[in-house]
Design a protein around this nucleic acid. Structure first.
Lengths: 166, 166
DNA sequence: CGCATCATTGAGCTCGCTCAACCGTCGTGG
DNA sequence: CCACGACGGTTGAGCGAGCTCAATGATGCG
């Protein structure tokens, strides 16, 4: 799943991706200010805030506890994402993204579950830039691309870490 | 207060500013991954996680509840900040920043509590760009600058809203 | 007064965006 | 079975928003 915000003129920012068993959508207040969409066929379970005025009630039960943990985890990720968006160069953004994705997929070889457009809108760049940089990384032997370019294998994580700069 | 992350080479991203009575510093796990600094003389109160393994324990007491609320509020702000960093132009960033600050200060006339460098590092730009854009906004009569350029008065909020694009 | 710090302003350059063409894959219908 | 179009991805060329470098101005402090 991706959760995103869009500006009136259509510019889009994907605030985060969610993988299996991730919890998402915890927001302050009643109104949801961002939307979540599936990037592919997905099964999701909805937990609705019980009737009470929509505040953070019933903190004592297990679900609320998980929701809070997820919000705090998300917050940490958001902070990491902020420095990526605000201060990293295009190549550093892609390197960070690949390392982060590999970690969340628990494998150095994986199929990206999202399109280049989704990646670009997550990293605050364009599809062309993502494409060019992935091509360069492949040329340099740092990664391998296959099969419609969605399948990725990290060949040299040390080099990626060096590129990511953080 | 400002909370920020820095890359190895010194590039800095300020993830957020905190004003009077704001709670900050809620983070996943034991290790703090970002640092908080005062932008001027400040009195802060520290709440230490009670001995227990550092998880989100004792959810039932008042303080934890406030901490959770602050984390969720921060998360919402982070998402707003992400689209600013990733998708807005320099002038839109500054317009958003001014409107947001006015709202948090509850006044259209205020003294900025942080330097241009802090603003730039928050918006993912440079001091020069911030300076140039503020000058332009003043030239256009949208804002007024005085007194060492820290004092700001919003003269035309409608115009700022139009500039901010969200 | 001199120095340090913060902010402004100018000039030139660069990274990444825009625009555009092209390629490969897939699914659909004749 | 193949032609076709749609879609996602790649690649090239040129351009411009914003960065870098540099000089100057304003303010405050010892």
């Amino acid at each position: 799943m991706r959760s995103c915000k869009v500006l009136v003129d259509g510019r889009r920012q994907i605030t985060g991706f969610y993988f299996v068993d991730d919890i998402f959508g915890v927001e302050p207040g009643l109104a949801h200010r961002l939307s979540a969409e599936a990037t592919r066929a997905t099964r999701a379970v909805a937990y609705l805030q019980p009737g009470s005025a929509g505040g953070l009630s019933r903190l004592d039960d297990r679900l609320s506890r998980d929701a809070i943990t997820s919000a705090v985890t998300d917050l940490g990720r958001s902070h990491e994402h902020a420095i990526l968006l605000g201060r990293k160069t295009a190549i550093e953004k892609v390197a960070s993204f690949l390392l982060d994705t590999a970690e969340r997929m628990r494998s150095d070889t994986f199929e990206l579950p999202m399109s280049r457009l989704d990646i670009a809108d997550h990293l605050g760049t364009t599809i062309e830039t993502v494409s060019r940089i992935m091509a360069k990384l492949a040329r340099d032997g740092v990664i391998t691309l296959q099969n419609g370019r969605r399948a990725i294998a990290l060949r040299n994580k040390a080099a990626l870490c060096r590129l990511q700069e953080s």
